[in-house]
Design a binder for these strands. Structure first.
Length: 323
DNA sequence: ATGCATGAGTC
DNA sequence: ACTCATGCATA
């Protein structure tokens, strides 16, 4: 039990500026306010639920018609090493919407980037009235943009001077790339970085997983998450490069081996259906989730979590159009 | 690199 | 019961 004293990573004091914390709070509040109307659907067409399910299933069905014989088997994967040398692999298939700057003002929501684009194209029936839940008008940036962007200094990548620049998506992207590059140069893996973070003993900062480091480098984290992690990773990088110059250090790394959690895998056909449902209704009620779960023969909780993760995916950083 | 999951904080 | 930050397990 003393193997890893993992703390839930509370942001360091320096990062807990009201700016961020209040954003978290208000972001949700605002989202709620902006939401059209939770369940104003099921009344017009009576048994809307079934229509929805049927519709989504139909959509999912046409998708597979061509050749797939209901064989949820996948295979053919390129060999993959977790080593830093292989981190160059960059897929990121899912488009996502970037969050507008949190610092300036509580922006409304990101435009959901459609994952199942094709599916939506078929949706012009009146049944789609429930759609566009998170849709909202692009309010753009605040009229007053006193942002002095000193970052354009000729000579090279300027370190973040103003806090405004710290949360600039472009800055974050640039940093992420530099970070990865330098990390690789140091011959350190993503997992190593995560573990090394604990050794820095920054207040409130424990170790991070390979997953998180990977996601940081590939910008597949929320904007806020990226902004919060940046200073921490910067700190590690500084230390690591310093230690590299006068190589004298050699601490860290204590692996622990304990297995348990099992990861349920949702088969391709079911996944297609879920995606179809999601396109129609990203936020199904508990009842609908139950119905979907039954139709697909999945555990209700699995379906619920799937929808949560799907929504979270949409909110990840990664380029969108606001640049 | 990414899919499914957990847990804290909210509402 | 949701969002958000994270992580284990696995393709």
């Amino acid at each position: 039990m003393a193997l890893n004293a993992k703390q839930p990573f509370t942001m360091p004091a320096a990062l807990q500026e009201p700016k961020f914390s209040s954003l978290h709070a208000s972001a949700e509040a605002m989202r709620r306010v902006c939401l059209p109307a939770p369940q104003l659907q099921g009344n017009i067409f009576g048994s809307f639920d079934e229509s929805l399910l049927a519709r989504a299933e139909a959509l999912a069905a046409v998708d597979i018609a061509p050749h797939a014989k209901g064989h949820p088997h996948h295979h053919h994967h390129p060999p993959f090493k977790q080593d830093s040398a292989f981190s160059a692999m960059s897929g990121v298939p899912c488009a996502a919407a970037a969050r507008p700057l949190p610092a300036a003002l509580p922006h409304p929501l990101p435009r959901p980037a459609l994952d199942g684009g094709d599916l939506l194209e078929h949706l012009s029936s009146p049944l789609a009235v429930g759609g566009l839940p998170e849709q909202l008008p692009p309010p753009l940036l605040p009229p007053a943009a006193p942002l002095a962007l000193p970052v354009g200094a000729p000579g090279g990548p300027p370190p973040p001077a103003a806090p405004e620049a710290a949360s600039d998506p472009r800055e974050l992207e640039a940093f992420a790339e530099r970070f990865k590059q330098r990390r690789v140069r140091l011959g350190v893996t993503q997992a190593d970085v995560g573990a090394a973070l604990a050794a820095l003993q920054l207040p409130g900062v424990g170790a991070l997983s390979q997953s998180t480091i990977c996601r940081f480098e590939s910008l597949t984290l929320s904007h806020n998450n990226m902004a919060a992690l940046r200073p921490v990773l910067q700190a590690w990088l500084d230390g690591a490069e310093a230690a590299h110059r006068d190589r004298a250090a050699g601490p860290d790394l204590l692996p622990g081996a304990e297995r348990k959690r099992k990861r349920t895998s949702i088969a391709a056909p079911e996944k297609r259906s879920l995606e179809a449902f999601f396109a129609l209704q990203p936020r199904p009620s508990a009842e609908k989730i139950a119905a979907i779960a039954e139709k697909l023969d999945l555990k209700k909780n699995v379906v619920r979590v799937w929808f949560c993760n799907q929504r979270q995916k949409q909110k990840r950083m990664k380029y969108s159009a606001v640049h």
